[in-house]
Design a protein around this nucleic acid. Structure first.
Length: 551
RNA sequence: GGCCCGUUCGUCUAGCGGUUAGGACGCCGGCCUCUCACGCCGGUAACAGGGGUUCAAAUCCCCUACGGGUCACCA
């Protein structure tokens, strides 16, 4: 039976690249009626934390990717080839490690990290490729024993055989590595934990993994894994290396891109101190600015982006969730980034993916992540929903991220709000981002002196202000404040007061009640706001009066 | 720098020796219109370069260029 696995390290959220790898593993296993497992690669004691591990389980779950074996989450997880956390498999690695030592193909090495770093630096200066010199291999047994008795920290290295290695890859074909290209790499760290290379090989064997689908950054590691498999007498799984996902500018999509965008904006504005309200103290600020590897926390980054008025790039699955993309759309788009069904079909669901997925249709070349296309797919999916489905999803999204709207609106108002936005939004955040004025207090609305507002309020004869003044009594006297009633009343009014041109009054109204030039259809907007708020806002707008002399 | 991988419209891709090189997103133009969107109609646009092989090459081979990955006691 086919068995695939996704094996992330628990270092933060699920990156879209990782999500795509998981998706391919999942789709392949489902297509082949096999099993998909999840394994947590937490052998780095410095970087692992239990809390970080949960983030991507949630992300996978949200995307609709379930797993048959692995950590338990919802209905996923379980299985009998565990444990699925590498940190809980130390005895297994130790037993396999001993086989290698007994066979004479693994040996202890006592060089310190500092010594090795120095040797590497020297090699670089001489413009030579550094490979471990096998010095420890020539240590005699007594010396080794003496070092061990002294308790000297040491690693275990694998004695790489002097022969070429051929990796057979389902996507890339055969990749041949000549003898002498690989050094005797470390398989057990000084802290007793196996390195990634060793743990992966042991786990894939003991978990019965038949196919390894992963990012192409692992290609260069694969010869090591093949060698270890041979030394241990294991089977070599089928490998399929998927190309990387890049930013539109060709750089690698990275968790650090958010900080990169923020630093660029900070430098551009010449900010030399942390803006108030973003929760960053001066010391953290300066070290963050000078050290490109440091990252701001999520809250801080969001706050700073708000102050700088820039959009942070979405990188993690959770970013796309928060940005209002539908999980089935992200999944569809991710599948298309590096795979295609072979015909012109681009929009499809999970069932289609499972039915048609195959390794030989995975693309070799790297792909740039195109948010515009993702957004277009999201729009198509939103428009394909019926009104109830959309309202339900928008409400669920509001519960998650936009609670203020649910507090400020009755269920009926929210339904109108959803309906008014359904046709015109590309993401679930659009209605909220463009509709802040719905939940603002009437006296929080302001009318900045910008071109669009001047045009709606000050231009024309009569001006927008004058029309607002004129229509106010009619609105005040309207007894049925529904969109339909407003439409007929304002429509009639426009016929006799605006030469039948609805826009002459619609736009001043829009500006008066929203403080901006963009809103849902005006009658829906007025209905949701309610008569009292609309009249108050019109009054305040009239009282405010942009300076017409400067326009 | 060594090793490895890749290269079709701006982007994602179809193509697996003979096609007017197809689709999608974007972009441009027009229509619709109470704003923004949506929708509809139309259009622009690609085989990185050079050598081979072949009757025939985007498709096969080689070289170059460019892009990327990797060279940790990270995974």
């Amino acid at each position: 039976m086919i068995r695939t696995r996704f094996a992330p390290s628990p270092t933060g959220d699920l990156h879209v690249g990782g999500a795509r790898s998981a998706l391919f593993c999942w789709a392949f296993a489902r297509h082949e009626a096999g099993r998909f497992l999840l394994r947590i690669e937490d052998t780095d004691q410095k970087r692992s934390s239990a809390a970080a591990g949960l983030g991507f389980l949630e992300a996978l779950d949200w995307l609709g990717i379930d797993w048959d074996e692995g950590p338990e989450h919802g209905t996923s997880g379980g299985g009998n080839t565990g444990p699925y956390f590498q940190s809980q498999r130390l005895e297994i690695y130790q037993a396999q490690m001993q086989r290698l030592i007994d066979a004479g193909v693994a040996y202890r090495a006592f060089e310190t990290p500092e010594e090795l770093a120095q040797a590497r630096a020297g090699a670089r200066q001489r413009k030579e490729a550094y490979r471990y010199d096998r010095a420890a291999l020539s240590l005699d047994a007594d010396t080794v024993q003496q070092y061990l008795d002294e308790g000297r920290p040491h690693v275990i290295r694998f004695k790489v055989p002097d022969e070429p290695v051929v990796v057979v890859d389902a996507v890339l074909g055969e990749v041949r590595i000549e003898a002498g290209e690989l050094e005797d790499f470390v398989i057990r760290k000084a802290d007793g934990f196996p390195t990634y290379h060793f743990a992966v090989v042991v786990d894939d064997q003991s978990m019965g993994v038949t196919h390894v689908l992963r990012g192409q950054e692992h290609l260069a590691n694969t010869p090591k894994h093949v060698l270890l498999q041979q030394a241990l007498g294991y089977d070599t799984p089928v490998y399929a290396h998927v190309s990387l996902i890049f930013n539109p500018d060709g750089s690698k999509m990275s968790k650090r891109d958010k900080d990169k965008a923020l630093r660029a904006a900070v430098r551009e504005r010449g900010l030399d101190a942390p803006p108030a309200g973003c929760g960053i103290d001066t010391d953290a600020w300066s070290s963050w600015l000078s050290d490109k590897t440091t990252q701001l926390g999520h809250e801080q980054a969001e706050a700073l982006a708000g102050v700088l008025d820039i959009e942070l790039p979405e990188i993690n699955v959770s970013d796309f969730r928060r940005a209002g993309y539908l999980p089935e759309v992200l999944l569809n788009y991710l599948a298309l980034l590096g795979w295609s069904p072979g015909d012109d079909r681009e929009q499809f669901d999970k069932a289609f993916l499972v039915e048609h997925f195959s390794l030989d249709r995975i693309v070799k070349s790297p792909a740039k992540f195109d948010r515009a296309k993702l957004k277009a797919f999201n729009l198509d999916a939103i428009q394909a929903m019926d009104a109830d489905a959309f309202t339900t999803r928008l409400r669920a999204f509001a519960q998650q991220f936009e609670g203020a709207f649910l507090e400020a609106m009755t269920p009926e108002q929210f339904e109108t709000f959803a309906g008014a936005n359904h046709e015109r939004c590309k993401t679930l955040t659009d209605p909220f981002d463009q509709g802040r004025f719905f939940v603002m207090a009437d006296d929080e609305i302001t009318w900045p002196d910008v071109k669009g507002l001047r045009k709606a309020l000050c231009k024309g004869d009569p001006t927008g202000y004058e029309r607002l003044e004129a229509i106010r009594p009619m609105l005040e006297g309207l007894s049925d404040w529904s969109a339909a009633s407003l439409e007929s009343a304002i429509g009639d009014w426009a016929k006799s007061n605006c030469e039948g041109n609805l826009g002459r009054i619609a736009q001043p109204l829009r500006v008066a009640v929203s403080g901006g030039t963009v809103s849902p259809p005006i009658f829906d907007t007025l209905e949701i706001l309610g008569q009292a708020a609309v009249l108050r806002r019109i009054e305040r707008c009239l009282a405010h009066q942009l300076n017409t002399a400067t326009s």
